[in-house]
């Protein structure tokens, strides 16, 4: 099979091998973006659109605290702003996790409870962050409570759905067998129930955190006087494009760091014993495309064992 592919004619046959490698393409991408940026910079008739080096200098000054900018809020530099957001995110996240786990277990165990909550959970899940951002700003003012509640509102439905799927996916025959062999209940819980729930619980954590963060920054724009969202709005209000773009890049770095440094190692550790994550992907499927990160890296083996999950996605909810 591999020989068929390698002998197939490819369009760029004349090029050297390293140019054709996907790794080179991956490295090429940021340079292409930079090229487009310069192109826009030189062609766009705008006095505020910054050159890449302007943004780089701005970001460097923000990181090293040499910019001399005084933010009109109590938090005066990027670390404090990001720290405030991280604190709100973490508090809200744990509330969402506890609340979501309780409701998720109930909903997973009983079909009646599921019917009771289902439409409302779906409704909150699909609600745009803007709605509760505007509302929380008006209702609760500019303190910490509004942003924390935003994380809870954004994150809880994700936890509920994942835990529900997890409970439904517990291997009933294993539990039945354990019962018939008179295995004590706490052992069943520890060796059957929890391990089968783990991947779903983990997916819940990951998506609650990611979605909570996205909702939080929008809420901070409308319902806070500090934090990451507020800071990028500060630069926007000041009409400093280099500030907005610089902070946009900070946001991306923050999100990527979270994925690469926290969640990916955690996932590796949590699923070392587990060969596949298909079931989890299934439960993740209906969240509007938030998919397992790094998914686009298609390896040969993955193509062969690729599983059609659309059926599950289409009929899930």
């Amino acid at each position: 099979m591999a020989t068929v592919v390698t002998t197939a004619p490819s369009p760029g046959r004349g090029l050297p091998g390293w140019v054709k490698s996907p790794k080179f393409a991956r490295i090429l991408f940021p340079f292409v973006v930079l090229g487009i940026w310069y192109f826009i910079y030189y062609t766009l008739d705008s006095r505020i659109f910054p050159a890449p080096q302007t943004v780089a200098v701005f970001m460097w000054e923000e990181i090293t605290l040499t910019s001399g900018v005084r933010y009109s809020s109590a938090a005066e530099n990027i670390y404090v702003q990001f720290g405030i957001t991280l604190m709100r995110l973490t508090i809200g996240f744990f509330i969402a996790l506890i609340l979501g786990t309780i409701i998720g277990l109930a909903v997973g165990i009983s079909k009646k409870v599921d019917a009771f909550f289902h439409d409302w959970v779906m409704g909150v899940l699909a609600m745009p962050a803007l709605v509760y951002a505007l509302f929380l700003g008006l209702a609760l003012g500019f303190g910490n409570l509004g942003p924390i509640l935003a994380v809870v509102i954004a994150g809880t439905p994700f936890v509920i759905i994942n835990i529900r799927e997890g409970v439904r996916n517990t291997p009933k025959e294993l539990i039945d067998m354990a019962r018939s062999f008179e295995v004590p209940q706490n052992k069943i819980t520890r060796h059957v129930l929890l391990p089968s729930l783990m991947p779903f619980f983990f997916a819940a954590i990951r998506y609650a955190y990611a979605v909570g963060w996205k909702g939080l920054v929008i809420t901070e724009v409308f319902a806070s006087d500090r934090g990451m969202g507020w800071t990028i709005k500060f630069w926007y209000d000041a009409h400093r494009a280099h500030g907005v773009i610089g902070y946009a890049i900070f946001f991306i770095i923050f999100a990527l760091a979270l994925e690469k440094l926290v969640f990916d190692p955690l996932a590796d550790r949590a699923f070392k014993w587990r060969p596949k994550m298909d079931a989890v992907q299934m439960a993740e499927g209906d969240f509007g495309g938030v998919q397992r990160e790094g998914f686009l890296l298609i390896e040969d083996q993955e193509i062969e064992e690729g599983v059609d999950t659309t059926v599950a996605k289409g009929g899930n909810f």
Partner: peptide
């Protein structure tokens, strides 16, 4: 696939606000 991989990742993880 290699070329667009990071673009897709960035788009997925970053909030619409930025």
């Amino acid at each position: 696939n290699g070329f667009f991989r990071d673009a897709v990742t960035i788009s997925l993880v970053s909030p619409s606000l930025i």
